[in-house]
């Protein structure tokens, strides 16, 4: 949009609109096309659109539901958010078998090779674009490194509401995740379980019961954050 057009729609003087636009441009909320001089929404606004919820807040709000998910699934639970194109683990519940495990809160994982990452990327196409531009690293034979193939999978993930990583980060390890949304319906993180392929797959198929636990946990946390039940 041009300044004249905006001023007309807002009923404000052109100089005022120009001043506002300059401020918005400085903080990255709008961008000006260098050729046409017209304005469009900026990248910073798009990032804000992915919604920001303090990771510590998310952990606190999700505590009971992530415990319940761990005890129902008998697998370890992680909650992650997107942080500069990677997955930041903000919460980790041990697999409830009393074996030695170490807290992984604060760890950064590749988004394209984890179920949590893919659940979030499916809702954030512009982050996917940034990752594609930077190149997708390979971790195992199963890692998806072709951006188009990944984009196609992300569309499926968005449609069905859950993501999976089939030995794409670590050989022998599978994870499932579903996105957590806030009251505006924006993604704030994803919750998932991970464990050995022998337990998480059934006859080469996803373990539907475990997937349903993950989705229920994501819905429950979303509901607590005020999201409209879906």
């Amino acid at each position: 949009m041009g300044v004249v057009e905006l001023a007309g729609q807002l009923g404000l003087p052109k100089a005022t609109v120009h001043g506002i636009l300059r401020t918005l441009r400085d903080v990255g909320f709008v961008e000006q096309d260098p050729e046409s001089g017209k304005y469009q929404l900026g990248a910073a606004l798009l990032h804000m659109g992915s919604s920001y919820l303090d990771g510590n807040e998310l952990r606190t709000r999700a505590l009971n539901w992530s415990d319940a998910l761990a005890s129902r699934s008998n697998e370890s639970v992680r909650i992650g958010t997107l942080h500069e194109g990677r997955v930041l683990i903000v919460h980790h519940v041990f697999r409830p078998d009393d074996s030695r495990q170490a807290l992984e809160v604060g760890a950064l994982l590749p988004a394209h090779a984890t179920a949590i990452g893919k659940a979030l990327l499916a809702e954030s196409p512009y982050v996917m674009d940034e990752l594609a531009a930077a190149g997708l690293a390979r971790f195992t034979q199963a890692t998806i490194v072709d951006p188009d193939q990944l984009r196609e999978q992300l569309r499926d993930i968005k449609d069905r509401g859950w993501a999976t990583d089939l030995e794409e980060l670590v050989d022998g390890e599978v994870s499932y995740a579903a996105v957590i949304k806030d009251r505006r319906g924006l993604p704030v993180g994803a919750i998932g379980i991970s464990g050995p392929v022998e337990r998480l797959r059934k006859n080469g198929e996803p373990h539907t019961e475990l997937v349903s636990y993950v989705r229920e946990a994501a819905r429950a946390v979303s509901r607590d954050l005020g999201a409209i039940p879906w």
Partner: peptide
């Protein structure tokens, strides 16, 4: 009841 107690996190 003891058998139901499981470690969720340890520091």
């Amino acid at each position: 009841l003891r058998a139901n107690w499981h470690r969720a996190a340890e520091w």
